[in-house]
Design a protein around this nucleic acid. Structure first.
Lengths: 125, 125
DNA sequence: CAGGATCCTAAAAGATACTG
DNA sequence: CAGTATCTTTTAGGATCCTG
């Protein structure tokens, strides 16, 4: 096949860091995985891709997801800078969750997840 | 922006199945996620992208990974049809693990994971 | 060489009830 | 409305020792 200009390793491993030999927080792959990990993460992200959502709207869209787990997911996404939490003062409380620019950057990854999953389903059937 | 011909939902939700409201095994996204989930899955897959590997070669490449966990990962990948296990008869035992066609189909997803992770790292720094 | 068998710990998820 | 507090269950991962 001749020599390729770009190999898997070229794309996956920074040339100055050597080969990844264990899961490490500063590996790009791990960073991306952290964003979509957790049983409900992709579903929450999908809902947010449609625009800002309130806590209750997210719960309504994902009926089986408990408040506790949703809070945990959201906290994680906020901590990673993927989602912004906007609290409106007053009572009853109102909060909107919206994707940040970094959060929006996940869209191609989610699309690729879907695409790959479809391909796997076809090759299996 | 005008109307788009393809929206997130168009790509992510089959039109005949309604909206996904809980993690479900027949959702393409879940299928793809299953392939790359587990603390070491992406690292094992990366090694296999380089060609067939023996059990020991995989262990040597991932020194911190225990035999048990590697076996679990490999069993999962085989069960999903992503990896083929080729046992050579005789003693000592010899086994080669190789990606199937379906397994090779994961490459773009891994590349996208890397790409997205890099983007996130940049937007954070 | 390539695992299987056990036991243990930690983290994630779920159920339920309650509060600012 | 938007969470918090607890408690219980589930699951992934790791350590160690053993076997075909």
């Amino acid at each position: 096949m001749g020599h390729q200009t770009v190999t898997w390793d070229d794309e996956l491993v920074p040339s100055d860091s050597g080969r990844t030999v264990a899961p490490s927080a500063n590996c790009p792959v791990e960073v991306a995985l952290a964003a979509i990990s957790g049983r409900w993460a992709t579903l929450v992200l999908r809902d947010l891709m449609g625009g800002p959502r309130s806590f209750s709207a997210l719960r309504a869209g994902l009926p089986q997801l408990s408040a506790k787990v949703l809070t945990e997911r959201l906290d994680g996404l906020v901590a990673q800078g993927l989602v912004r939490r906007d609290r409106s003062p007053g009572f009853p409380a109102r909060t909107a969750y919206a994707l940040t620019g970094a959060g929006l950057a996940l869209r191609p990854l989610l699309v690729e997840l879907y695409r790959t999953g479809e391909a796997l389903l076809k090759s299996t059937s």
